[in-house]
């Protein structure tokens, strides 16, 4: 008898584990560039903020359709480049003119022409590093896990299908209405993504 009492408890434990999988969003599949452009416009007009488009290759003009703001990366790179410039100049001043003065072929201890190659290289170095790591940071990369990877269908995003994923955290999100919207925009398939 005691076992009878215990059985439902185990079931509730399993049920509670299932409850931890929550809805992450909706994934809609499209067949070609034109339909995904149209759908992206529709999703944007519906007022969604937290959503993205996935395609096997870059689509010209998709940024404008999705309303993506210009990246701030160039400003980060400018900042990195200027830091390199000032850093390189300061380094040479400290080393050659201040901390360890050493006369080389009658040249002044601190003269700009001789410093420019090092300044140039430091500027390029910090610009390039800022560009690479700034890009990774802004794209939230590297990202080792994404719930979308659970979808079998989504694998074709690297081959011949186009996808729109809408995040369940979006204020406008509603499981049924949003799915209906995506279907009305021409999606060939809509599925839920859970995690």
């Amino acid at each position: 008898m005691s076992t009878v009492i215990e059985e439902p408890r185990e079931e509730t434990e399993i049920a509670s584990e299932e409850e931890t999988t929550e809805l992450v969003g909706l994934l809609a599949e499209f067949k070609d560039v034109d339909s995904i452009m149209k759908a992206a416009r529709g999703v944007r007009n519906a007022g969604f903020i937290r959503w993205d488009v996935y395609s096997p290759f870059p689509i010209h003009g998709i940024d404008a359709v999705m309303g993506i703001k210009p990246t701030i990366l160039p400003w980060l790179v400018l900042g990195g480049g200027l830091s390199g410039l000032i850093g390189g100049l300061t380094l040479q001043w400290f080393v050659n003119a201040y901390d360890y003065q050493f006369m080389i072929s009658g040249k002044p201890y601190w003269s700009l022409p001789a410093n420019i190659p090092v300044i140039f290289e430091c500027t390029v170095l910090l610009s390039a590093l800022t560009a690479v790591f700034g890009m990774l940071m802004l794209n939230r990369l590297p990202m080792h896990y994404n719930p979308l990877f659970k979808s079998e269908r989504f694998r074709r995003a690297t081959d011949d299908r186009f996808f729109i994923a809408i995040d369940a955290q979006d204020a406008k999100f509603d499981e049924h209405d949003t799915a209906a919207l995506l279907e009305s925009l021409g999606a060939t398939a809509v599925e839920t993504v859970e995690d």
Binding site: V33, P58, I59, H60
Partner: peptide
């Protein structure tokens, strides 16, 4: 790269 087909 993808181009819209109307720009011939």
């Amino acid at each position: 790269m993808s181009h819209s087909s109307d720009s011939t």
